[in-house]
């Protein structure tokens, strides 16, 4: 049964990753791309999680926590940068 689950989730996650990558490529603005790469990171985390659950090991648990924290730091930084750069011409 676990093999079946692995196949199904692999297909679903691949489709999801494909969608996120399309949005990264197409995204009209920087924020869209950041958002999509955040989703891509979450999909990587989900894949790590499923791998651990199916194969019953915990080697990647810290990697999972680290990945989610890196995604957070990355998107916050970029959001800050975008807000700063665009506001100045409009405010003056």
């Amino acid at each position: 049964m676990m093999q079946l689950v692995l196949t199904v989730t692999a297909v679903v996650l691949s489709l999801a990753a494909g969608g996120a990558i399309i949005r990264i490529a197409r995204g009209p603005s920087l924020l869209d791309r950041v958002l999509a790469s955040d989703v891509l990171l979450a999909i990587v985390g989900a894949a790590l999680c499923i791998d651990m659950a199916v194969n019953r090991h915990l080697n990647n648990l810290m990697l999972l926590v680290a990945v989610s924290l890196i995604g957070f730091v990355g998107s916050v930084t970029v959001a800050r940068f975008v807000a700063d750069r665009r506001e100045k011409p409009r405010g003056s």
Binding site: T9, V12, L13, A16, A17, G19, V39, A46
Partner: peptide, 17 residues
């Protein structure tokens, strides 16, 4: 749970698109 969890990722991608 795993299948539904993976579906949630797909939901995110569909929404993005």
């Amino acid at each position: 749970f795993m299948v539904v969890g993976a579906l949630m990722s797909l939901a995110a991608a569909v929404g993005l698109l």
